[in-house]
């Protein structure tokens, strides 16, 4: 009998600690599938952030090192410069990447650092208990915007991928979601492309993943998954924002 489905080799045999309906476990799963399929386990190094995915190293069976909050892109820069043969990725949340780590992210992109960033956007600070993130939608209630985010006081949801798409050093940016089988397949394709961009030495690659957080959104799982498409994706449209990989291949 042909075996068509099994646990990826680079995914440890540990039960996920994530909440039911959380997107992290799905993203971990497709990333480890890709690490196997692209044969990267012996040269890939991951940098997870403080945040819900701080324990990512308990699931990925690859070399990993923790990073200070927001500093992932700088740590990855140092690592890649010291070890250019390595495949280096950061795994960052919205607070980590788009608030405290904005400078590190923008400048790594601008230098065209040949690294891959997996940017998990769930519009909220998860691990600390549901505070407002830079990507929280206007009107969205969080523990620090109990009356809903007021753009006059708290600004608007920050579209980091659109911003970074303007930066010359960027090779590839796509925004995906993990709230349906179709979207999950697209997400996997995007992450593959991002890793491939790094392997080909094309520069900075990032995949923004819209990821449901039923716990902090105070929703049940189907409701949260629906909210990603119905509400979040209106503010953060899915699709490719920048892609020079084709150009480079052509030339």
């Amino acid at each position: 009998m042909k075996k068509i489905y099994s646990r990826p080799k680079s995914l440890k045999k540990t039960a996920f600690h994530y909440c039911p309906g959380c997107g992290h476990s799905i993203i971990h799963r497709i990333m480890t599938e890709l690490i196997d399929e692209m044969d990267l386990q012996d040269k890939i190094i991951g940098i997870p952030p403080p945040g819900c995915s701080v324990f990512a190293y308990n699931y990925f069976d690859i070399d990993m090192a923790e990073s200070a909050h927001g500093r992932g892109a700088a740590v990855a820069t140092g690592m890649k410069r010291a070890y250019p043969e390595g495949i280096i990725f950061t795994y960052q949340g919205d607070g980590d990447l788009a608030a405290i780590g904005t400078a590190e992210t923008v400048h790594a992109a601008n230098r065209g650092e040949n690294i891959t960033v997996i940017f998990v956007n769930n519009a909220v600070y998860g691990m600390t208990g549901g505070q407002m993130a830079p990507t929280t939608l206007v009107g969205q209630k969080t523990t620090t915007t109990p009356y809903g985010r007021d753009e006059r006081m708290e600004g608007n949801a920050l579209r980091i991928s659109e911003m970074l798409a303007l930066v010359k050093g960027v090779a590839y940016i796509e925004r995906v979601a993990v709230n349906s089988p179709t979207n999950i397949r697209k997400a996997k394709k995007a992450i593959r492309k991002a890793f491939q961009a790094q392997i080909d030495g094309l520069g900075f690659s990032m995949v923004e993943v819209l990821s449901p957080c039923p716990t902090n959104w105070r929703m049940d799982e189907p409701e949260a998954w629906q909210w990603v498409s119905d509400v979040m994706a209106k503010e953060f449209p899915l699709g490719v924002l920048k892609d020079v990989t084709g150009e480079s291949h052509a030339s």
């Binding site: 200070a68 500093r71 820069t77 140092g78 410069r81 010291a82 070890y83 590190e104």
Partner: peptide
């Protein structure tokens, strides 16, 4: 933090 990354790489 770049120092940290490079030191991790040995």
């Amino acid at each position: 933090n770049m120092v940290y990354g490079a030191s991790l790489a040995g």
